[in-house]
Each structure stands twice: as structure tokens, then as C-alpha cells.
Simulated scan of single mutants.
Amino acid sequence: MASSGRTARNRGSEPSPGQRRIAGFAAVGVTLAVAFAVATGTSQASENCDGLDAAVGNNLAFIADQLVFPDELTEARIANRQAVIDQLEQRRAAAGCTGEVEVPDADPNAALNGGAAENCAGLDVAVRNNLAFIDGQRRNPDALSEARIANRQAVIDLLEDRRTLAGCTGEVTLTPGG
């Protein structure tokens, strides 16, 4: 009789198969929720409002310079920079940036560079930075990686157009020497 009492007590304290299944699903759900929270926090950290604001400001400054010192390529340059600004504004919105970016004054030294403030080395660095971001998204993808990659590729395409307009030559790759 004592052994049958033990069996009844042990059976009552062990979870049923249904309870085990529910606990398993709950554990998987918690794990997925934590993984999503970590991934979301990590991806948001990759976008910096100050950096995005600075990039928008730099492009606005370039447009202002082009308006003050126009040449035969001004219209194309402004259209290109406006497309870059539109991409940056999308990234600012996705990152939760809320501040207004001011239009800086035109650079009085821009006339010394034919009205163009383009710098091939700077454009190459910008392309390389975007390639590195894409590479990082491909190595550690999350739910938003595909959209981020498409966004950055569009920025690279615009930067390549600017490189062409500025007379930059050579292909930009992830490795600085490549």
C-alpha cells in the first residue's frame, strides 16, 4: 500500500504531457521574444540620429553651394543630392529621429572648386561605409535586413552617380586598397 501511495504522489507532482508541451511552447515564445528584442535594439543602434542629421546637413550644404555657384552640372548634382536626402530622411524616420535639420550657409570656398564640393576620396569612403553596412547586414541578418540593404544599395547607386559627375575613377570595394 505504501508503494501505491508513493506512485500516486509522484504522478500528481509530475507535469502531464500536455503541461510539458505548454511549458515548452512558453519557453520557445520567451526565447523568441528576447531574441527579437535584442535584434531590434542592436539594429536600432546601427542608426545614429546625430550622424544621419549631419549627413542630411552636409547634403543640404552642398545643394546650397550649388545654388550660389551654379554650373552646367548643377541641376543633376542637386537632383542627385535630393535623392540622397530622401533616403536619409527615410532612415531618420525609421531610427526615430525627430529633430529638424537646418540648411547651412553656402560655403564661400566652393567657387574655388568650380562650384563643386565633391571630393573623390570622401565619396569613396561613403561608398565603402555603405558596403560595410550591407556586409554586416548580410553576415547578421534580421527581419529588417533586406529593407536596410535595399536602402543602402540605393544610396550607393546615388554615390556612384556623384562619383561619375565628379570625375572619380576606379571601383570602390570594401578593402581600402581594392
Rank of each mutant, 00 (worst) to 15 (best):
E47D: 11
E75W: 03
V38D: 03
A61H: 03
D50T: 07
A76C: 01
S46R: 15
D86I: 02
V28K: 08
L32K: 08
A27F: 10
Q44K: 15
A76Y: 08
S43Q: 13
V34G: 03
A45Y: 05
G41A: 13
D53T: 00
A45Q: 08
R77E: 09
D53R: 02
S46G: 13
N59H: 13
V28N: 02
A79T: 15
D86Y: 00
A33T: 13
A83L: 04
L52G: 02
C49W: 02
R77D: 12
A83T: 08
E75L: 12
G41L: 05
A55R: 13
S43K: 07
N59A: 03
I85R: 00
L32F: 12
Q87D: 10
R81H: 12
Q87C: 00
P70I: 08
N59C: 00
A33Y: 08
P70M: 06
G57H: 01
A54Y: 02
V84E: 01
G29D: 03
A35T: 14
D71G: 15
L32T: 07
S43G: 06
A37T: 13
A64P: 15
N48W: 02
D53I: 01
T74L: 11
V84W: 00
G29Y: 06
L52I: 14
Q66H: 09
L73I: 05
G51I: 04
D65G: 09
N58L: 05
T42V: 15
A45P: 00
D71Q: 12
F69D: 11
S46H: 13
C49G: 04
D86C: 01
F25G: 12
E47S: 14
T40R: 14
A55S: 11
A37N: 07
F62R: 11
D86T: 03
R81L: 00
G24L: 11
A61R: 10
T42M: 13
A37M: 05
E72P: 01
V30Y: 10
L52Y: 07
R81N: 11
T40E: 14
G57P: 08
N58V: 01
A79W: 04
N48L: 06
D65Q: 05
